[in-house]
């Protein structure tokens, strides 16, 4: 006798349905990863705390000024943005122990022993009229200067790039080249 089960559902259109959904998700997917320059803002100044000028010697400060016409003034001289990285590197490293470049202080650092660490600070000041594009380029160059120095040191010591080092090694290198970029309190120059 003919056994009558339920008739089989035609599954050939299953693929089409699945394709339709697939295309929908393909189109809506945005695979962009958010990336950018990470910075840390200085903590807010307490109201009761008197604004005191911290005494830093002039030779220890690398002044970078950006004006509203997007011109760059570094240590009192105009500079092109392409040269900023080299300038900053020379300032931080001070290879010849120049009188006008930052002092060094010997510190005990893992792996390196007693190592002279530069006291240099980069001070970045911008006007309200400066374009954001240029500001970010300058930030980028300054960070690049630090990153290159760290990479060079890592290469010299371990023959590896900074990013490939172990955590404690990274920490030691960071102590040798601490990232010190200070942004001055905003000043109102010109229109509000």
């Amino acid at each position: 006798m003919a056994r009558r089960g339920t008739p089989e559902v035609n599954a050939s259109s299953m693929a089409d349905i699945a394709f339709l959904l697939l295309v929908f998700f393909l189109v809506t997917t945005t695979m962009d990863v958010d990336s950018g320059l990470s910075r840390k803002l200085p903590p807010p100044i307490e109201d009761n705390e008197e604004k005191k000028d911290i005494d830093i010697k002039e030779r220890n400060v690398y002044v970078v000024l950006l004006n509203m016409n997007n011109a760059l003034l570094v240590e009192g001289r105009e500079m092109k943005i392409e040269n900023l990285k080299e300038g900053a590197k020379e300032f931080i490293e001070n290879p010849l122990n120049n009188e006008n470049l930052p002092e060094k202080k010997n510190k005990d650092i893992d792996f390196f022993g007693n190592y002279p660490v530069s006291k240099g600070v980069i001070s970045l000041q911008n006007d309200r009229g400066t374009s954001y594009k240029l500001y970010l380029q300058v930030q980028n160059e300054l960070i690049a200067a630090y990153n290159e120095l760290r990479n060079e040191k890592a290469m010299q010591k371990w023959g590896k790039k900074f990013d490939d080092l172990k955590k404690i090694q990274k920490k030691a290198i960071k102590k040798i080249y601490p990232q010190r970029i200070s942004e001055a309190e905003p000043k109102n120059i010109g229109e509000n």
Binding site: R39, L41, Q139
Partner: peptide, 13 residues
């Protein structure tokens, strides 16, 4: 952001 104590920032690029 400083006043709000949100000090970690990232300039998207």
């Amino acid at each position: 952001l400083r006043k709000a104590n949100a000090l970690k920032i990232n300039y998207s690029a």
